[in-house]
């Protein structure tokens, strides 16, 4: 038991350089795995909504037809569950943090016009195909019904 046990260390501290970094002048160095904020490669997105269902804080919304992906960055808790769930792996975790702001706001990402046009064309094609298939199915049914009616006669 004695006094001033820490004095030598405390004196040494006087001559050591500071352990903190002077942040705004020296940039912040994140680790490789730092969970900063979510980014999306919007043109890869298929609008499945897996991320919306996964999000624990309901920060995401997806509009499939309009090709829009919206995130409320101030609701996002950066848990990375959406990145984990994304089937196309178009979501990623970036190593820089969200900047602060005076109020909560949403950021919307929209697909580029070319991709949207391509998707609209595909949808139309699919709709056409579906309509054709439906018409064929109906014609087949009508023919069957007619055949059945004939047999009954």
């Amino acid at each position: 038991m004695s006094v001033l046990k820490y004095a030598p260390e405390a004196l040494k501290n006087l001559f050591r350089p500071p352990v903190t970094t002077s942040y705004p002048f020296k940039p912040f160095e994140p680790a490789d795995r730092t969970r900063g904020r979510i980014e999306i490669e919007i043109d890869q997105c298929i609008g499945c909504g897996m991320c919306v269902r996964a999000c624990p804080s309901s920060a995401l919304t997806v509009d499939k037809n309009a090709g829009k992906w919206t995130i409320n960055r101030f609701d996002c808790i950066a848990c990375g569950f959406c990145v984990e769930k994304c089937p196309k792996k178009c979501l990623s975790m970036q190593q820089f943090y969200q900047e602060p702001g005076p109020e909560k706001n949403e950021v919307t990402y929209t697909k580029s016009p070319e991709v949207l046009a391509e998707e609209a064309r595909k949808r139309e094609e699919a709709a056409k195909k579906a309509a054709e298939a439906k018409a064929a199915m109906e014609a087949k049914k009508a023919a069957e019904a007619a055949a059945a009616a004939k047999e009954e006669k």
Binding site: P30, A31, R33, T34, R35
Partner: peptide, 11 residues
Amino acid sequence: EMTTGGRVIFS
């Protein structure tokens, strides 16, 4: 932070 990506919330 190096191993999990978070400083206090590991996730």
